[in-house]
Write a protein that binds this DNA or RNA. Sequence first.
RNA 1: GGUGGAAUGGCCGAGAGGCGAGGCAAGGGACUGCAAAUCCCUCUACACGGGUUCAAAUCCCGUUUCCACCUCCA
Length: 471
Amino acid sequence: MSSLNLYDTATRTTSAFVPLKAGEVGIYLCGATVQAPPHIGHVRSGVNFDILRRWLIKSGYNVTFIRNVTDIDDKILHKAVHEESPWWAVAMKYERAFTDAYAALNVLPPTYEPRATGHVTQMIELMQLLIERGAAYAPGNGDVYLEVRKLQSYLTLSRQKLDDLMPAADADETYKRDVRDFALWKAAKPGDPSWPTPWGAGRPGWHLECSAMAKAYLGESFDIHGGGLDLIFPHHENEIAQSEAAGYGFAARWMHNAWVTASGEKMSKSLGNSLQVHELLKSVRGIELRWYLGSAHYRSMLEFSHEALAEASVNFRRIEAFLNRSVELLGKVPTPVVGKAFSDAMNDDLAVPTALASISEALRIGNSAITSGDMTAVAHSADEIRGALEVLGCDPFDSAFVSQGSSDEMTQALDGTIKLALAQREAARIRKDFESSDAIRDGLKALGIVIEDTAQGPRWSISQKTEGSGS
RNA sequence: GGUGGAAUGGCCGAGAGGCGAGGCAAGGGACUGCAAAUCCCUCUACACGGGUUCAAAUCCCGUUUCCACCUCCA
């Protein structure tokens, strides 16, 4: 079995993954700034890194997965004014929306999910350390800045030169030693929330929380830091600047997921209303949306379209239908097994599209085995497919999805009712009264129940709602 | 101006020097009372112009178009 290779944004190459501590992996993923409802771009990041996490777990690692919540920043404060509610109420509202979206898509809850506002103490300690080491300064107005010109290796992740950056249009240079110095801490303005510090009351700048919380939960050095491509600069550069200036090793590897695009352009908050997760979940199930978001390689742009989402839905249902048939035929739920082709693909920088090809292959073999009555082969295919789906977070037998169904009593009652109708239909077919038998089939179909005649007799299933039917 | 990314068949979407991923759609066939489901077959592409090579979608040079980041961003 091959070993895991992962891409590293810092070196722009793929290399063997070697954890800092044998058997353990620490991951820090930049989570949401909770200032708006989640759109599918946000959750794509969650899904991509959830697949990474599940694959690491499946590979035998003990994974500590941190995904933060940034619950204080300029946008949240603006939103609070706009919504006429307290900033903390805004943050809580959208944090819940994110939590719901992650849950609907079966993204595992992080090991720890720290909030920025709960770690002001750690931030102050980090700033004190940075000032002691001469990397940061407090000019006396309540702000604290990091002095970027003094850094040995600033901007190495994005490979830019400090002097080539376009100067910020709105930079307040009054207290800065250099225009590009960034704020670790911002002095409180009237009406703003604030916390007391040795340099005056204020609130965190955007980047400080991640350095402070990564240190708190993963230590000075950890294995993987993840986030969206657009965080490379400035957010991740500034995290590196803070943490390395503090003397920490920080992230050994950087991984970034690409965007979901719409009409070739990055999804932005201004055009994304209909692409909010809760909107899309009106037309497809969470497991199907996840299947779609996870189906492209994490470093490739995913061009969103309703047609492509519907196609992914149909594709997933074929796989699900095979698994359900295998349960009917074998009388047991498949045991997850990881196949070699799938494993090799995942070890190659999480090559999910190639891994999906291995699922298609297993599906074809499994369906043929049903036709030929080779139950050993059916079981083998079903086990491998379930093993693959489990890693992708799309296992239909996962309690996260099973619980979305209805109660056992109702299911049994419905099953009994339909079987009565099917018995009538069979009787009609035997006496070649196809008009009556087809009437029964059509009647059931009108109710959303699809009948299939198989070698083992008729079976029924509920036809799923389809994408695009709502609007 | 600086730094990156992308262009693949009707569509989606991998691959990164040589046996043309995979899916969807379409057409044909098998099975079926008819369907449905399933299986088999067919259609075969790498933006453009040069170059390297026995061999280029893949490497090199140039060009075009598009996208992103440059202190709000997943």
